[in-house]
Amino acid sequence: MSSDEPRTAISGSTAPVTDTRDARRGEGVDDRFNSKLREAFGSSPFILTKFDKFMNWARGSSMFLLQFGIACCSIEMMHTFAVKHDSDRFGAGVPRASPRQADVMIVPGTIVSKFTPRMKRVYDQMPEPKFVIGMGSCTISGGPFQEGYNVVKGAEEAIPVDIHVPGCPPRPEALLYGIAKLQERVANGESSPVVVKPYELQQFSEMEQDEVVDQLADEIDEDDLAMRYNWADSP
């Protein structure tokens, strides 16, 4: 059939489609076919809603996650994406390899001093609006490695976190619950109640002048950004 001729499926009656669907549904309506979109639209082809409300609903219903493996939790994160748990069922299951295509960053693991600037950079590359799920105890406080000399005491030292999923590691079900909670909040347009400390990314000159700073002051350029971790003052 050439494309310049109208097809009956489009121009003709929609009855065959409806009949097929009804035949498939049979007795007793299967509410899987009553999608949220259908509920929102109702029987009329028009929707009356606020634009931002609609946008929030769309955002919450289609979340692209960043494929971002750090440590142990990333194994459970992979299980969440894969068969059996399949987070795609909830509209949040397509891991994107590039931060520029992602909405949600799951931080799955221990963050150490060398990695923090890189994580911050990845976070900065994500387009707004962006959300962060902290997965596991390490992103809350450093977890079992809290006393380590090299371990940053929680992801919030560097980036804001919307939802914390505790566990070491959290089960995939727990992560799914965290993702669902985040989606719910995004869909409702709620802002994050988490109080986020300012990024500890500072110009070198603004830093407290202690012996380490003095020692490094000559080596580091004026333009060179530095990240500072002050263990003593960390919560």
Partner: peptide, 10 residues
């Protein structure tokens, strides 16, 4: 261990 450390973004 309590001494602050600096990690650059170079």
């Amino acid at each position: 261990q309590d001494r602050p450390q600096i990690v650059t973004l170079r």
